[in-house]
């Protein structure tokens, strides 16, 4: 082999070993590179922080209990409700095409309301305005099922919320909430999920607090849990008075936290602790 090729081979071997070393460090938790100006270098789904068993449960569509919610909502999708005699399907047809990508971009600006709305709110707006049906209550099985179902139509698509234009003040508001310490324990979202992710707090292994898997099947609750319920739970646990689900505060926080996970694939229905 000519000397120059030996040199090249050595360079390749060196590059390969450096790559292997880097890979070994990240082997446990794979992520995606964050865009410039992001808070993380690597954005990592909560999936990567969970046990092999929990991940296997999520990965098997037949075993994943979150799919029961998806199946229930697939029936509800076709069911006419309200005085207009309409179902979701009456306007939206096949969810696989009409809802594809919708969940990945929520919360989204609503020109009529002049504020961002999330998936739960969008579903209820449809029910009230177009179906003339009662809105579903937050945390009701019906609303969480349908939210899960619609989000599932974006499964594998990257989280892609818009944070500029009229969303910009909402983004800033959410960011402020994220970094504000609340409650008697005086903790912010950032205290655990930014500064201490990848570490144990007692038996809890802290993740980046990403939202790409929500609504998520939570093992300890044995049901699918919507995002704002998780926000409430975190605030309650630090002995703070939580904001109300679907409040402007949580909407802003949902937007901001979605941005912290920008580009992650939608995993709904994910399985978490």
């Amino acid at each position: 082999m000519a000397p120059r090729y030996v040199g090249l081979a050595a360079a390749i071997a060196l590059a390969a070993s450096v790559a292997t070393a880097a890979l070994a460090q990240d082997a446990e938790r794979k992520g995606i590179p964050a865009p410039p100006g992001h808070v993380f270098n690597t954005i990592i789904s909560g999936y990567q922080f969970r046990s092999k068993e929990t991940r296997a449960l999520q990965d098997d569509d037949l075993e994943n209990p979150g799919f029961l919610a998806v199946e229930r909502a697939a029936d509800a999708w076709k069911k006419a409700e309200g005085s207009e005699g309409k179902s979701c399907m009456s306007c939206h047809g096949q969810p696989e095409t009409s809802m594809k990508g919708v969940g990945a971009t929520m919360p989204k600006w609503d020109d009529k309301l002049k504020k961002p709305v999330n998936l739960e709110q969008r579903i209820n707006i449809c029910r009230v305005e177009h179906m003339k049906a009662e809105p579903w209550k937050f945390k009701s099985r019906e609303l969480t099922d349908m939210t899960t179902f619609v989000k599932y139509q974006s499964h594998g698509m990257p989280v892609a919320v818009k944070t500029d234009g009229p969303m910009s003040p909402w983004f800033e508001r959410g960011k402020q909430t994220y970094y504000t310490r609340y409650g008697q324990l005086d903790l912010a979202c950032a205290s655990c999920h930014e500064r201490n992710n990848g570490k144990f707090m007692r038996a809890d292994f802290l993740s980046q607090g990403q939202t790409n898997g929500f609504p998520t099947y939570r093992l300890r609750d044995q049901r699918v849990v919507p995002l704002h319920e998780r926000f409430e739970g975190c605030m309650f646990d630090v002995r703070a008075e939580p904001f109300k689900p679907l409040s402007d505060e949580f909407l802003a926080l949902e937007l901001y936290v979605a941005w912290r996970g920008i580009g992650l694939p939608v995993e709904t229905p994910s399985v978490r602790n």
Binding site: T180, R181, Y182, G183, Q184, L185, D186, L187, S191, C192, R195, N196, M235, F236, R239, A240, E241
Partner: peptide
């Protein structure tokens, strides 16, 4: 630090009513 203050009962934000005015 993120460590809570264990003997402090004011200057905290949105403390749940049952803990207001109380230290940990």
């Amino acid at each position: 630090t993120v460590m809570p203050a264990f003997f402090k009962n004011d200057g905290l934000s949105r403390v749940r009513p049952e803990f207001v005015g109380k230290s940990i």
